[in-house]
Nucleic acid binder design. Structure first.
Lengths: 116, 116
DNA sequence: TCGATATTTCAAGGATTATTGAAACATGGA
DNA sequence: TCCATGTTTCAATAATCCTTGAAATATCGA
C-alpha cells in the first residue's frame, strides 16, 4: 500500500454509507454480496450505492465479479490489512514504545464478532 | 474510538498535507512541534497549516499547548492506536483468519524507522 | 505602551464530493 | 425477439472541503 493509495482509502472510509458497505462485505467474506442486496441493506438508492461502491473499488478495498444478472462485490482483505499496516508504520515510526501497548489488546480472535 | 470519531479521523487522514503533518508530529513525540515550524517543514502557508491542524485536532489526532508565543502541536498516540484498532475490528470481524497473517508482519520494532 | 513575532480567524472563491432521477446497458428467460 | 431484472452512467444540483490573503488575537521584550 503506497501513500497515494492510502490517501484514497482513507477518503473512502470517511463516509458513513461506504463504511457500512465495507463492513457488510467484510462480514460476508469471499462469497460477497450483490449490489442490489447491498442497496437494500444500507437503505440507499441503487445509483447512489453504485457511486459509493465505485469509490471503494477505486480505493482497492473491494472487487467485483458478475454473477448472472447481478454484480457481486467482495472485500479485498489484503488492501485492508495493507492500510492497517500503513497506519501502524506511521504510528510507530521511531516511537514503537508508545503505540505498541494499545495494539496488544485482544483482536483478531475467532468469535470476537463485529462492531455494530 | 466510536464510529463517528473514526469517520472524522479517516477524513482527516485523507489529505496529503494533513498526513505529512501527522507524520512529523508522530516522529517528534511528546515534545511536539510549533505551528510555524510545521508550516515551514511542509511548505504551506501559516493560515493553511492552521486550517489543517484544526481538522486533525477535531479528529482527536493531535493536541495543542501554548509555549510562549508558539502553539505547540503533538500527536495523540492513543487516538491513533484507537483508529488502528477500529480498523482491525472491522477487518477481522467474523473473519480473523483472513487479515491476521498480514498483521503478523514485523511492525512496532524499535529502530524500524519511518516511511518516507 | 509600543512594536515585533506567532498564530488564528474570517470571508471569498474555487475545487471536489454527494445525491437524485432519468436514461442506458447487460443478462436471462418466455 | 421481446420483456423484465439488475446495475451503471450521466447530467444537474446541493453540499462539503480547500486555498488564499487580509485582519484579528495573543505574547514577549524594549
Amino acid at each position: 500500500m503506497d501513500e497515494r493509495q492510502a490517501l484514497i482509502a482513507f477518503g473512502a472510509l470517511s463516509q458513513e454509507t461506504r463504511l457500512r458497505l465495507l463492513r457488510l462485505l467484510v462480514m460476508a467474506g469471499p462469497a460477497g454480496i450483490a449490489a442490489g442486496s447491498l442497496a437494500e441493506q444500507v437503505a440507499v438508492s441503487p445509483s447512489n450505492v453504485s457511486f459509493h461502491l465505485k469509490e471503494l473499488e477505486r480505493a482497492g478495498l473491494v472487487s467485483t465479479r458478475r454473477d448472472a444478472r447481478s454484480i457481486v462485490y467482495s472485500a479485498e482483505y489484503d488492501a485492508l490489512s495493507g492500510l492497517i499496516r500503513f497506519l501502524m508504520e506511521d504510528c510507530c515510526s521511531g516511537r514503537p514504545e508508545i503505540c505498541a501497548p494499545a495494539l496488544a489488546a485482544p483482536c483478531c480472535q475467532p468469535g470476537e464478532g463485529a462492531r455494530q
